[in-house]
Deep mutational scan, measured.
Amino acid sequence: MASDGVVVEIGKVTGSVGTTVEIPVYFRGVPSKGIANCDFVFRYDPNVLEIIGIDPGDIIVDPNPTKSFDTAIYPDRKIIVFLFAEDSGTGAYAITKDGVFAKIRATVKSSAPGYITFDEVGGFADNDLVEQKVSFIDGGVNVGNATPTKGATPTNTATPTK
């Protein structure tokens, strides 16, 4: 695992066909100046998982989280898009600690492993708008004895992609 920078880890949970599971997305290594904004994309298989919603985690402190935390689910493109932009203008609602960034709610549709993997990152910046190093650890849903650990090695991303 990367020793510096922010680590975004997609949790690994267990479920069975027809059940709804909650998959946490963790941030670790949050910089001392916090995270003022970030955007990134995960990939998944809508034939295996139906993403039914995404909720902000406990490290989102904006009293009205829909102003700073936004997501979009595109089953036709097989992606989930995340956007966080601190909304106070003063840094008061920045992410300042490690913990759960988001909770992905999904219904298991198939007995195949439900991988959720890193696809791309736009950027991560602290309260001074300084770009942060970030790496990703894939996860998803274990169905029966299947284990979604494909790509469990962190993917280092030093520069934003478009």
Rank of each mutant, 00 (worst) to 15 (best):
P154K: 12
Y26V: 04
P160Q: 11
P63G: 15
G15Q: 11
E22V: 04
Q132D: 01
S135Q: 12
N145R: 11
P154N: 11
A94W: 00
A36K: 00
V17F: 15
V41Q: 00
V41C: 02
F118C: 07
G91E: 11
A146T: 09
A85M: 09
K33R: 07
V6R: 08
S32D: 10
I95T: 09
I35M: 05
A158N: 12
F136I: 04
L129C: 02
F27D: 11
I54N: 05
V130D: 03
I23A: 09
D98T: 10
G91M: 15
E120M: 02
T155Y: 09
A72V: 01
I59P: 07
V61T: 08
L129W: 15
G53V: 05
R77E: 03
N64W: 08
G123E: 00
R105T: 10
E86K: 01
K33I: 15
S68H: 15
A112V: 08
P56I: 05
V30T: 06
D87Q: 15
Y115A: 12
S3I: 05
V6D: 10
Y74G: 00
L129E: 01
V30A: 10
A146M: 13
G144V: 10
L49Y: 15
E86P: 01
D4V: 07
F40K: 02
G114Y: 05
K109D: 15
A102S: 14
V21S: 06
N145Q: 11
A152S: 10
P65Q: 09
G89Q: 01
G57I: 03
G139C: 09
I51L: 05
V21P: 07
N37V: 01
V143I: 14
K109C: 08
A152K: 07
F101Y: 03
I60Y: 15
N145E: 10
P160I: 14
D119R: 02
A146P: 13
T117V: 08
S16M: 15
T153F: 15
G123M: 00
E131C: 01
A158P: 11
K67N: 13
V108N: 08
I79D: 02
D119A: 12
S111G: 13
P31S: 11
I59W: 03
E131I: 01
A94H: 02
Y93E: 13
A2S: 14
G15S: 06
D87C: 15
R77I: 02
V61C: 09
T159E: 15
K12I: 12
V8D: 15
T107W: 06
A92Q: 14
V61P: 09
I59F: 14
R43N: 15
I23P: 08
G29C: 02
I52N: 06
Y44T: 06
T147N: 12
P56V: 11
T117N: 11
D58Q: 08
D87T: 15
R28P: 10
F124Y: 02
V141P: 13
D128A: 06
K103F: 11
I60G: 04
P154W: 10
I80C: 07
K78Q: 02
V41H: 00
T153W: 15
N47F: 11
D45W: 08
D70P: 03
G18Y: 04
D128Y: 08
S68R: 14
E9Q: 10
V134P: 12
L49E: 02
V21G: 05
D4E: 03
R43Q: 07
S68Y: 14
P154A: 09
V6S: 03
V81R: 00
N64E: 15
T159R: 09
Y93T: 14
Y44D: 05
E9F: 02
G122V: 00
K12D: 12
E22G: 06
I104N: 01
T157Q: 14
F27C: 01
K33T: 03
F136T: 03
G29R: 11
A125M: 01
N156E: 12
F84M: 11
S88M: 07
G99K: 12
K78Y: 14
P63Y: 13
E131N: 07
C38A: 08
K78A: 06
K109W: 06
G15E: 13
V30P: 10
P75F: 03
V48S: 05
V48K: 02
A2E: 02
I51P: 04
P46N: 08
G114H: 09
S16K: 11
S68D: 06
Q132M: 03
G139D: 06
N37F: 00
Y44F: 05
D45A: 08
D98G: 06
V25D: 01
D126K: 01
D128K: 04
N37S: 12
T155C: 11
Y115R: 09
G57D: 06
K133W: 13
G18P: 12
G34A: 06
I104H: 05
D70I: 15
D45R: 05
N64L: 07
I80L: 04
I51R: 11
V121I: 15
T157S: 11
A152D: 09
R77F: 11
F27M: 13
V17A: 10
V48Q: 10
T90K: 05
S88Q: 09
G91S: 13
P63T: 13
T96V: 12
V100K: 13
V13W: 04
G34V: 08
F84T: 02
T149I: 07
P113L: 11
R77K: 01
D39C: 00
S135H: 06
S111T: 12
P56W: 03
I95L: 04
P24Q: 06
I60R: 15
G139Y: 13
R28H: 07
D39M: 00
S32G: 10
A146E: 13
I79K: 02
V108G: 13
S110T: 11
N145C: 12
T117R: 08
D126P: 00
I95P: 09
V130M: 15
V141H: 13
G11K: 05
